[in-house]
């Protein structure tokens, strides 16, 4: 992929300039696409589309702008392991908080009278 006509140190992989511009073009295209799709009524599906497009953009940025394509496997693993823990965090919390949502939602109303007497 990179121009090895020149003798760079083994850890140096300059990204080809045309590739960077192509990636930028694709990113702009996807940005416009996500705005356009958001104006179309897709219901539940709209969120999924937006996330898929965002993930495609994220992939392009990671792979080429961030040089992951040429990077060590370990570094890539390190970065993506963070997503695993984020999903764990979101998943477990979401699994739980739904069950007592009604109590939380009712609280400001039930406390309304006591609130108005305090300085809060």
């Amino acid at each position: 992929m990179s121009d090895h006509s020149h003798d760079y140190p083994s850890f140096n992989h300059p990204a080809p300039v045309p590739l960077l511009f192509v990636v930028f073009g694709a990113l702009i295209f996807l940005t416009v696409a996500t705005v356009v799709t958001s104006n179309i009524e897709l219901g539940e599906f709209g969120f999924i589309v937006a996330m898929i497009i965002a993930t495609m953009k994220a992939f392009l940025v990671c792979a080429f702008f961030m040089h992951m394509w040429w990077d060590k496997g370990f570094n890539v693993l390190v970065f993506f392991s963070s997503l695993l823990f984020v999903s764990l965090f979101i998943g477990m919390t979401l699994l739980d908080t739904g069950s007592y949502k009604e109590t939380i939602d009712a609280f400001p109303t039930t406390e309304e009278s006591s609130l108005s007497t305090t300085e809060y």
């Binding site: 965090f89 919390t93 908080t97 939380i104 400001p108």
Partner: peptide, 17 residues
Amino acid sequence: DPRYGGDPVLFQHFFWF
């Protein structure tokens, strides 16, 4: 803060994570 519709148990999730 539950007075503003917040979730105090959520804080515990955050904290213990």
